[in-house]
Amino acid sequence: MTHTAGDVSARLPIRSDLDLVWVRQQVRQLAASLGFGLVDQTKLVTAASELARNALVYGGGGQVECARVNRAGTPGLRLTFTDEGPGIADVEQALSDGYTSGEGLGLGLGGSRRLVHDFEIDTRPGGGTTVTVTSWVSPPPRQREAR
């Protein structure tokens, strides 16, 4: 994954359910301002919602850093969720399809990973978790020429 350093647009705390609402709103606004289409905005907001909830429920709270990034002229949005919780003991299990604790949207980490273009996770038992996701603006579909 090669891209330029991000322009940090926001650092948002994740300490309560109200913060989850604020994270969703800010991610949607940033994605729209970068030119994401409605479907891609929804995918990114859904992933952000799940990851923010994970940081709150399993990590005891944390923060998300939102950064505008660019790769070969294509704008994107990178979201970095961090917490200082207990970490994830079995990352492969947590990323597997069908794995859920029953607390979130039912997507889990694997579902969030499928909703974004780039997904990285750094966790260790007792050391917290950092999940970084990036989505890139897709070019608009070409219109068919009139005949």
Rank of each mutant, 00 (worst) to 15 (best):
H3S: 07
G6T: 11
D7V: 15
V8P: 03
P13L: 05
I14A: 02
R15N: 15
R15P: 07
V21A: 04
W22N: 15
V23T: 15
Q25W: 12
A32W: 08
S33R: 15
L34I: 07
L34F: 10
F36I: 13
G37A: 08
L38R: 02
V39S: 11
K43R: 14
A47Y: 04
L51P: 00
L51W: 00
V57G: 06
G59I: 05
G59K: 03
G60V: 10
G60H: 04
Q63V: 07
Q63T: 15
N70Q: 13
A72Y: 01
G73Y: 01
G73V: 01
G73L: 05
G76T: 02
G76R: 01
L77T: 07
R78D: 15
F81W: 12
E84V: 08
P86L: 15
G87C: 12
A89Y: 11
D90F: 04
V91M: 11
Q93V: 12
A94Y: 00
D97S: 15
G98M: 10
L105Y: 11
L105F: 05
G108I: 13
G108H: 06
L109I: 14
G110F: 04
R113G: 04
R114K: 10
V116A: 04
F119D: 13
E120G: 07
D122P: 02
P125S: 14
G127W: 14
T129H: 05
T129I: 01
T129Q: 03
V131P: 03
S135R: 00
V137D: 02
S138M: 03
P140E: 01
P140N: 01
R142E: 13
Q143C: 07
Q143V: 11
A146I: 03
